[in-house]
Design a protein around this nucleic acid. Structure first.
Lengths: 200, 200
DNA sequence: GACATATGTCTACAGTCGTTGACAAGTTCC
DNA sequence: GGAACTTGTCAACGACTGTAGACATATGTC
């Protein structure tokens, strides 16, 4: 189903195999639940013995946490207070001008969040990640009243849409280009309602 | 942690114990992942041998499906095209005039959906439930263009907010009554943006 | 009371899981 | 070439899971 991450025999190199395991783990966690991903599958796709995973990362939980780590991740980059709503809509619609592999990493990481959101063991890790890597950056860009509230609500919308689209695979059929256009317009309108300060 | 559903010894009564198992299952699935809920826990809280669960419901999957079934469930009852946005906001804010136990059942069922959304085995069942029990009723009330799309987007918002609040327990701190008020206003505005027909 | 049936329990199986410790095979350095 | 170290494999443990079949016990009927 999922193509092996690293088929070629790797010369002995701790850093490289560690990375291969991490990449394989990201791929799997982005497709399935925390509890439904086995260390044996991760190791298998990385071309490695399952025991190595435990030894390199300590535990499955630690591996999962590592999976979400990203040193230079700022997905609000380039967004100003005025373009926020459109920025969010683009984020969901997979547009914008971020380089492809960086974008893929971000998408995988968001998918990981969405898939394991209901898992008690992964929950604490996910909560932290959302707090520090997502909500705070959003709130920092926002001005005016209720920055925390608005950030949380906007991300809630993004999350709901993401689950609808990726996890549940429920999509209103948008056959024509006009349909897509109206969807995008409405999406921007919703994000605006969540993000913009109250005017009354 | 979770108090036993039925502590008293039950006289032998197939229908009653079946119901007790179902109630216990609902409680557990509303608090944890599909794979993290064991038949032994469900049976334990129902005061019953684990084997009985398999015998009464056939399989864990079938039990889960039964958990979501509700013969007279129409959570759009009383909503008109004009009051929709407020109806949704009230649904989330736990207001309205539905009787308490019926409301509790609905909330538990929604929590079940949210918690196991990432589980591959429960996924198909959840998808069906959302389609027939939620999206279609919403779309039926809506008029005008893009009824499916608007229904899906409104539910996505509801789902995102629900996960934020219940599963992730992330809430913008709303200390004062005015905070809550502004939250409610914004929520209604978001739902309106998702539900109302485009006017341009 | 005795039988038949419905209801519930007990034991155990086959499978999966994460993790560990002993061992093998490379690599590096003297 | 041999020692010291790193890197990877193997086998297995203990804990857990959903489920099935044999068994026990209560209920209902004659």
């Amino acid at each position: 189903m999922i193509p092996p991450v690293q088929a070629l025999p790797r010369s002995r190199n701790a850093a490289a195999t560690r990375e291969a395991i991490l990449v394989s783990a990201r791929k799997h966690f982005a497709r399935e639940n925390y509890e439904n991903v086995g260390l044996r599958e991760i190791a298998g796709d990385a071309g490695v013995d399952p025991a190595l995973v435990s030894r390199y990362f300590g535990s499955k939980e630690a591996l999962f946490r590592e999976t979400l780590r990203d040193d230079d991740k700022d997905f609000m980059e380039g967004a100003t207070r005025e373009t926020l709503a459109r920025h969010f809509a683009q984020l969901f619609l997979d547009e914008g001008d971020t380089p492809q592999d960086e974008r893929d990493l971000h998408i995988d990481q968001i998918l990981i969040l969405l898939h394991s959101i209901g898992s008690p063991k992964a929950g604490e890790i996910i909560r932290e990640t959302i707090d520090t890597d997502i909500l705070e950056p959003i709130a920092r860009v926002l001005g005016g009243q209720d920055t925390e509230m608005r950030a949380a609500m906007a991300f809630a919308v993004l999350m709901g849409m993401g689950i609808m689209h990726n996890t549940l695979a429920i999509d209103p059929d948008m056959c024509s280009a006009e349909d897509t256009d109206r969807f995008e317009k409405r999406l921007t309108r919703i994000f605006a309602a969540a993000l913009e300060p109250m005017d009354d």
